Simulated assay, not measured.
Amino acid sequence: MSFYTDPDIARRAETMEQTIRTYFDGCNEADSGKIMSCLTVEAVHYFPPRMYRGPFRGARTVADRWIEAVNEMGSYWSIDTLLIEPISYRAVMEWTHFKTKHNKMLRGDEWYEFDPASGLIKEIRAYYASPQASDLTVLELGDFDYAGRGYPAAPPPGAR
Results as ranks from 00 to 15, higher is better:
G33Y: 01
F47K: 02
G58N: 08
H97I: 02
G26H: 01
W66L: 08
R107K: 15
T19Q: 04
T22Y: 10
Y89G: 05
I121Y: 08
H97Y: 04
G108N: 02
E42W: 00
D64T: 09
V44D: 09
Y23Q: 11
I20P: 03
I35K: 03
R57Y: 00
Y89L: 03
R65W: 11
A117T: 01
G54E: 11
P48N: 05
N28R: 01
Y52F: 14
E29R: 12
M16C: 07
R60E: 15
W111K: 12
T96A: 06
I20C: 09
I121N: 05
M73G: 10
S118C: 04
C38E: 10
A43R: 02
C38D: 11
K122Q: 11
V92E: 06
C38W: 05
H97P: 02
R21L: 09
V41W: 04
H45T: 07
D64M: 08
I20H: 10
F24Y: 15
T96V: 05
K122C: 06
T40I: 11
E68D: 08
E123C: 02
T96H: 04
L120Y: 07
V41R: 06
R21E: 05
E42R: 02
D31K: 04
F56D: 07
M105Y: 12
K99Y: 09
L82E: 01
N103V: 03
E110M: 14
D109E: 00
E72V: 13
S37M: 09
E94P: 02
T22V: 11
F56N: 01
E72W: 10
W66V: 08
R53L: 13
I67P: 05
S37F: 08
T61A: 15
D25R: 14
V92M: 12
T96R: 07
T15H: 01
G58S: 12
Y76E: 06
A59P: 12
G74M: 07
A117I: 02
S75M: 15
K104C: 03
T19P: 03
A63R: 00
M51N: 03
M51P: 03
P49E: 14
E85H: 10
G108F: 02
D115K: 06
A30Q: 11
W66R: 00
R50S: 13
N28E: 10
S75H: 11
G54H: 14
N71Y: 04
P48T: 00
S78A: 10
M16V: 05
R90T: 13
D25N: 11
W66N: 11
Q18S: 13
N103S: 14
Y76I: 06
K34M: 12
E42L: 01
E29S: 11
K101D: 07
F56S: 08
T61K: 13
D64F: 06
E85L: 07
G74S: 08
E113D: 06
P116I: 03
C27M: 14
Y112A: 07
R53I: 07
R107I: 04
D115Y: 10
R65T: 13
Y112C: 08
T100M: 09
M105L: 15
K99V: 04
S32M: 11
I20E: 06
F98M: 07
R21K: 14
S88N: 13
D64P: 05
S37W: 09
A63N: 03
R53Y: 12
T96Y: 03
F98S: 02
